[in-house]
């Protein structure tokens, strides 16, 4: 269209712009409606699914974790509110709060022994022992979720990964990279030797001893001078639970 000068031309152009905007808005609205509709459908499907498999979700830890994964993918958090539909339907809000309380309890009881750092596996098995009477079994995934909820309290509960293992920290200790590496090394036998640390990471002896001393001070390590080779061992209760530490270490090194 040839552009014409004058008032009429300007008015035409403005009217055209309005038209375009209107159409654009309409399209957007239709799309949003469609999306909303789809989401509503999906939500009702998910609810239907949850209702149908309520018992499985409650009782079967694997199923529960898969359900959580599915919810996470579509941005639904069944734990977000205890009052919400999900909690009412499944009662899983309470379930995780209960777990959370028990986890705090276990961490406190074992703190004197492990310095506030506990192996997730051990925590989970202690949790299962404690809940023997409860019918539902608990998986590591459930523990992680419950701990995640505890973060809200700001009490410094945190899950850290050291090597292949996950450790749950219940005291606000700052562990640096050196400490983490030592903990990882200790997973092999439950203890480390100074020379072993130096050799493995090519550290100066000062660096190794310094890191080990800090771990001692924090109550995360214990010394053992009783081996017949006379070398001091640094044991880490958080990587080897006492119950599983037996005398087989005498054969190694």
């Amino acid at each position: 269209m040839r552009r014409r000068p004058g008032i009429a031309g300007l008015q035409n152009a403005a009217a055209a712009r309005d038209q375009y905007r209107l159409i654009g808005e309409n399209v957007a609205k239709v799309r949003t409606d469609l999306m909303n509709q789809q989401l509503a459908t999906f939500r009702s499907q998910l609810e239907e699914f949850a209702r149908k498999h309520k018992n499985d979700i409650r009782k079967n830890p694997t199923f529960r974790s898969q359900f959580h994964e599915m919810c996470a993918k579509v941005g639904v958090d069944p734990l977000a509110s205890n009052k919400g539909f999900w909690a009412e339907l499944l009662g899983i809000g309470d379930f995780y709060y209960e777990l959370g309380v028990q986890i705090v309890d276990i961490c406190l009881v074992t703190r004197t022994h492990n310095g506030g750092l506990i192996n997730l596996q051990e925590l989970c098995s202690l949790l299962c022992q404690r809940r023997k009477t409860a019918r539902e079994s608990v998986s590591e995934d459930d523990c992680l979720r419950a701990i995640n909820k505890l973060k809200v309290l700001g009490s410094g509960f945190e899950v850290i990964s050291v090597g292949k293992k996950k450790l749950v920290r219940s005291v606000p200790t700052e562990l640096n990279k050196d400490h983490n590496e030592i903990l990882e090394l200790a997973q092999a036998h439950g203890y480390v030797l100074v020379e072993e640390v130096e050799k493995r990471f090519s550290w100066s002896s000062g660096r190794a001893i310094d890191a080990l001393e800090t771990l001692l001070e924090e109550g995360l390590a214990m010394i053992d001078d009783g081996h017949r080779d006379g070398k001091r061992r640094y044991w880490f209760p958080c990587v080897s639970s006492i119950s599983s530490a037996t005398g087989s270490e005498g054969l190694k090194i």
Binding site: Y191, M222, I223, D224, D225, I242, S243, A245, E249
Partner: peptide
């Protein structure tokens, strides 16, 4: 259990 954990002897 602690009786089997070596550092308790130091």
């Amino acid at each position: 259990h602690f009786f089997n954990y070596p550092p308790y002897f130091t």
